[in-house]
Design a protein around this nucleic acid. Structure first.
Length: 706
DNA sequence: CGGTCACCAGTTTTT
DNA sequence: CTGGTGACCG
């Protein structure tokens, strides 16, 4: 979007804000949130943090987490926030209902804790901004003038707060343009309010509606498939897409015995297409659940196909990453008790649970933050033994705080890793696991370096809070690089707004897509949302669409037998290619598969034969690939030409004392010394421009120059 | 305080 | 299959 705007507008386009709702709100809040009693260095809580906080809240309010699951509480609170229902009103609405009253109590405490941690959750970013604009006329005026023209894309996915926000901002000049497609509304589960788009004409009676029914992306066959599916939905604005792109290829449909076969076919099909002249980045594999990505990853590694998985188990949700980030948060905003508590004993410092709880109680009683209490441990009753340990922890953090002013973010990160002995502790914990985790930390360091580079490019100063923000808000999808040649794998949700010449929709099975939840539940609305998701998936394809499914599939360690997805049946038969062929994956006609009975064949004994290789083979292959691929800008699982393995545990360094080497940031220099400490090499280099520096070989990524 | 073991629950999609 | 939690012991 940014690129398109820049290209269209040209000179001056940099002053146009192009961002998600959430990051726009952060930008506004960073400037004005002090008016609402927060510190401008607030931290942003992700889903994980929310859950940790919620546990704490439930303990404090004596709410039984067996009866009220944290997840459920958070989702109720989130919906309330999205409708701008604050705790007072929520309590009022609860009336005499005991459960609702309990939730109201939790909601109130949750908000209080967020506030005292100087933290905002994702919903708060929107809600607080609306409150800010609602209560501060001068701020509102400022932004109304700043944004005299507003355009909202994917409007069908906005929720009530976002609607309010847009209404406020556009309230003065009323230059508002929204673009959306009710058939692509797929975020009801996170509060998207479809009424926003369906009732737009009522809210803005003077609005002009322009229907965009011509599609410039896909072939006729693909559009006919999409139309066929979506026409089964009831509550929608009737429309039929058309194109003059020509009929195009028919849609391929294939059913396989197992998910392994499915992955193998797709991998081979992609390889074939590349041999015929296509690029890897012409192809995308879309699936319903993140878990499906693993099989493809296995196959791609085995077949040496470059790929990138978007989303999935969030990188920033990994333990080691959260630990390091918690250090950064503690350094940046000592008020975030969650972060401080997370790291006070990581790596182990002999500060136990009893001590932590005593600190917590003492801090709460005195109305100060956890970290403030740690700064003066002698004032806390009953921690006598740990005083010296707490002192040295506080000294460490204070030291880092001082360093933020003196050194770059990457240097700070490296110093944290070094001074805390984090790597060593990982190794001591679980040497098997440590390898991957260390690589993740490396990746974090390079992300920080990339962030600093970006800031330099834009003439902005790289700040710790800036980086933490990026970490919390920037979607993984933004790291897609069109210039790199890799197959993209992602969920259907992530794929919205993107397009690819060749698209594979994998796992077209009832119980997977539509999901088990919607098939067993009896909410027709949810099924309609899944159908819209299918519509989104089909319309990502420009030229070639391939649908695949498996008869049986391992899910959570159990084999599931699935029928062909009901959505496939909704595709007009004439656009499908279902004829038989020599390849094993074809099936003749759809009937046999619809009526297919798991009891007929596929006894459990036959399953193991289809497993291509064992877990260890897989994890080894993956490690090898990662090591090989490492060196990329964002450090993803992408094979890159010319990348080289620099150093790691057990690996030999490609340079020695006296050699000339090159560093990404410091330029060329001479190696003065190499020390082998534990699992790492500490290299001392005299750089021509940057002077003498010590660094871990693993992070420094030094390259020998001749 | 820290480590180990056994048990249990959970599992769609994301900013 | 995974991750988290609680009980127990050194």
């Amino acid at each position: 979007m940014r690129q398109r705007v820049d290209n269209l507008v040209g000179f001056g386009s940099e002053s146009i804000w192009v961002s998600t709702f959430h990051s726009m709100c952060v930008r506004i809040l960073r400037r004005y949130i002090d008016r609402m009693g927060y510190d401008h260095r607030f931290t942003i809580y992700d889903t994980d943090d929310q859950k940790t906080l919620m546990k704490e809240v439930c303990r404090k309010t004596d709410v039984d987490t067996k009866r009220f699951k944290e997840r459920m509480l958070l989702s109720v609170i989130s919906s309330a926030k999205n409708e701008m229902v604050m705790p007072d009103e929520f309590e009022l609405n609860a009336g005499g209902d005991f459960a609702q009253q309990q939730i109201a109590k939790v909601y109130r405490e949750y908000e209080a804790q967020l506030k005292s941690n100087n933290a905002l959750d994702f919903d708060d970013l929107l809600v607080r901004t609306v409150q800010l604009l609602d209560t501060q006329p001068d701020v509102l005026e400022n932004y109304q003038e700043r944004f005299r023209y507003i355009m909202v894309d994917e409007y069908q996915d906005t929720n009530t707060v976002q609607f309010k926000l847009v209404s406020l901002l556009a309230g003065k000049y009323r230059n508002l343009c929204v673009v959306g497609d009710d058939d692509q509304s797929i975020y009801k589960f996170r509060g998207a309010n479809i009424r926003n788009i369906l009732d737009f004409e009522k809210e803005f009676p003077d609005a002009r509606v322009i229907k965009l029914e011509q599609n410039y992306r896909s072939t006729e066959n693909i559009l006919n498939a999409a139309n066929g599916v979506i026409s089964n939905n009831k509550g929608r604005k009737e429309k039929t897409l058309w194109t003059d792109n020509g009929e195009g290829e028919k849609i391929t449909l294939r059913q396989f015995d197992t998910g392994y076969d499915e992955a193998e076919f797709i991998a081979e099909d992609i390889k074939e297409s590349v041999q015929e002249g296509a690029s890897y980045n012409d192809s995308a594999i879309l699936y319903r659940t993140n878990a499906q990505s693993r099989l493809f990853e296995e196959k791609f590694i085995a077949m040496n196909i470059p790929y990138k998985i978007v989303g999935g188990i969030n990188f920033y949700a990994r333990r080691e990453i959260k630990d390091i980030l918690a250090y950064l948060k503690t350094i940046d905003n000592g008020q975030d008790d969650l972060a401080v508590r997370r790291i006070i004993n990581v790596p182990k410092r002999g500060i136990g649970l009893t001590t932590i709880n005593r600190i917590q109680e003492s801090a709460a009683a005195r109305g100060i933050s956890f970290y403030e209490a740690v700064l003066a441990p002698k004032l806390i009753a009953g921690v006598g033994r740990s005083v010296s340990k707490l002192d040295s922890f506080a000294a460490l953090i204070e030291y880092f705080k001082g360093q933020t002013k003196l050194e770059s973010l990457t240097d700070l990160l490296n110093e944290i890793i070094e001074k805390t002995g984090y790597i060593e502790s990982l190794d001591a914990d679980d040497p098997e696991d440590a390898e991957t985790r260390i690589q993740n930390i490396e990746e974090l360091v390079s992300k920080a370096a990339a962030y600093e580079e970006d800031c330099a490019d834009r003439d902005e100063t790289a700040t710790l809070s800036g980086f933490l923000e990026e970490v919390a808000l920037v979607a993984d999808i933004d790291s897609l690089d069109e210039d790199q040649d890799y197959v993209v794998l992602m969920t259907l949700h992530s794929a919205k707004g993107l397009e690819f010449p060749r698209v594979y929709l994998a796992g077209m099975e009832d119980g997977l897509f539509p999901s088990y939840m919607t098939v067993t539940g009896d909410d027709p609305e949810e099924l309609e949302e899944e159908r819209r998701l299918c519509y989104v998936g089909i319309t990502r394809a420009e030229q070639k669409l391939t649908l695949t499914c498996a008869r049986r599939r391992m899910i959570r360690g159990e084999t599931q037998y699935n029928k062909l997805s009901r959505f496939v049946r909704e595709i007009p038969a004439e656009v499908l290619k279902t004829g038989s062929e020599k390849n094993k994956g074809w099936f003749g006609g759809r009937e046999d598969s619809l009526a297919w009975d798991p009891a007929e064949d596929n006894t459990p004994e036959s399953i193991e034969n289809s497993v291509p290789f064992g877990r260890n083979t897989y994890s080894n292959a993956k490690k090898a690939l990662r090591a090989q691929a490492y060196g990329g800008k964002a450090g993803t699982s992408v094979l890159q030409k010319g990348s080289q393995l620099t150093a790691g545990k057990g690996g030999k360094l490609s340079y020695a004392v006296g050699d000339r080497v090159c560093h990404v940031k410091f330029g060329e220099g001479t190696v003065l010394d190499i020390k082998e400490g534990g699992r790492e090499y500490e290299v001392t280099v005299e750089f021509d421009k940057a002077g003498v520096r010590k660094m871990f070989a693993m992070f420094a990524k030094l390259v020998k120059v001749e």
